[in-house]
Simulated scan of single mutants.
Amino acid sequence: MPDYVDRCAAAVSEEKVVPLLTSAPFDRATWAVVDSFDSDVRTAYWRELPPNWNRDEDDLLVGVTHLLKAIRPRAAFRLAHFSMKKLPPLVLFDLLAAIARGSDETANTYQLDRHGLREAFRRLNESADVKTDAMAGLEFAFIDIFDDGEARPENLEKEIARNPELFVQAVGFAFKRSDDNEDSSELRLDDSNQKSNRARSAYKLVDVIALIPGRKDDGTIDSADSVRWIEQARAGYATIAREDVGDQMLGKLLSHAPADDDGVWPCLPVRDTLEKVMTEHIGRGLHTALFNSRGVTWRGSGGDQERERATGYARGAEAMQYTHPRVAAVHRDMERTYLCHVEREDTDAKANRRLIR
């Protein structure tokens, strides 16, 4: 076959040689023929080639490398989609980084899917060949794939849990100042599209992270470390006039704390933390996040579902009313919210029953 391709390529006109070569088998034998031509033909081949699946590991690496040089990272990812295990981790990292930078590929071609991208991140995390901070940057570039709870930006969460300034920066990017002053140069962007895209990504970041500051490798949470992180974060976003919204995002983050051994939310270290740092807007963030995290709802008899949740929060308030009164107040607030919904659902159920009769 390579001799046949070689003879055919030598026989056709210059304008037909690239279409001929891109129609030939997608393997090193064809690429050897491609390499016998000048740089214009070689460049045109890799820019126009529709990459096909190849079983050979060496062929895969060569194909991905050339497609990256041709600034076609999405095509390279499609080529590697079913064979990511064959790619060296650092090559896979470079491939994702190239996708994040953008490409010369035609719009709506070689579309990326969440499953494939998540698999790539899983492979990179398992390899441990890429540093955490580099992986964190890559996760931020692909923050959209983490917004449904099916996967976590693990490295980004770890970096933020180590450095509250990253949380402050994200709050600064995502939200506007609460006063009329101007931000420093670090937060400003002149390009409105870039500014909008950065704000959207930063908002998704503070919306999806769930690693509680102060959490250790064994899963326990050090309340003193949590308090120190929170105090640094609050001081940081206060200086950029985002104190209220920053506290709300902080409340949302702390809402991800696990329940304690007694089944009451949150666990004791986070109760201790909240008792020291609670503000009005942290409470608002907690309330909104807890209500939104109630998951799939079902409709029983009137407000039975809401009544059950109200009872659970009442139980939590009673368990903490003397030891952690600020956290107990959050539970009471949640109880009142659900009791309002109980009344509404009971009223609707009675009205429906009357209509049925």
Rank of each mutant, 00 (worst) to 15 (best):
R118C: 08
L254G: 03
Y110I: 03
P73R: 05
G246I: 03
R271Q: 13
A98I: 00
D59F: 06
R200F: 10
R326D: 01
G149A: 13
S103G: 10
F142C: 08
C340W: 05
D190R: 03
G263D: 08
E306R: 04
K158C: 08
F142L: 11
K252A: 03
H287Y: 11
S13M: 09
D262F: 05
Y45I: 04
N352V: 10
R28L: 14
G246E: 03
A151T: 07
A98H: 01
D272F: 02
T273P: 02
D304T: 11
N193D: 14
D180Q: 12
R123Y: 08
A80R: 00
K158V: 12
E139M: 07
W53Y: 12
N125H: 11
A98K: 02
F37Q: 00
S301Q: 13
D56M: 04
F291K: 10
I71P: 00
A224S: 14
I356L: 13
F173A: 03
P266Y: 03
R101T: 11
R354Q: 14
R307P: 01
L90Q: 14
K276L: 15
A136W: 02
T65F: 07
D3T: 07
L355F: 13
R357A: 12
E335W: 04
E126S: 11
V264F: 03
E186M: 09
N352T: 12
V171I: 15
P51V: 01
P88H: 10
A97I: 01
A210P: 04
Y45A: 00
D346L: 07
N163C: 12
D180M: 09
K131I: 10
E186C: 04
A10L: 14
F173K: 02
R284C: 12
E186I: 08
P266W: 00
L290D: 02
S185T: 09
K276Q: 15
D346W: 01
T239C: 11
V17G: 00
A70Q: 06
G295V: 09
R122W: 13
P2K: 10
D148L: 11
G236L: 04
R152T: 07
Y322D: 15
G246Y: 03
S39R: 10
M84R: 14
G251S: 02
T106N: 06
A151R: 03
G316A: 15
T65E: 14
S127L: 10
V270T: 02
D244T: 10
K158M: 13
R198T: 11
I209C: 09
R177S: 06
T279C: 06
A161P: 00
K216L: 14
R215V: 01
S83C: 10
E154A: 07
D217V: 09
S127Q: 09
L95R: 04
L117M: 13
P88F: 09
D40C: 01
D40N: 09
V34P: 00
V171K: 01
G137V: 05
V168L: 05
S184Y: 08
A174N: 06
C340R: 14
D191S: 06
R200Y: 09
Q321M: 05
R198C: 02
L339I: 09
F146M: 08
A134E: 15
D218N: 15
N352G: 06
Q248K: 06
A257L: 03
A314R: 11
P266C: 10
R284K: 14
L253V: 00
A11I: 05
P73W: 02
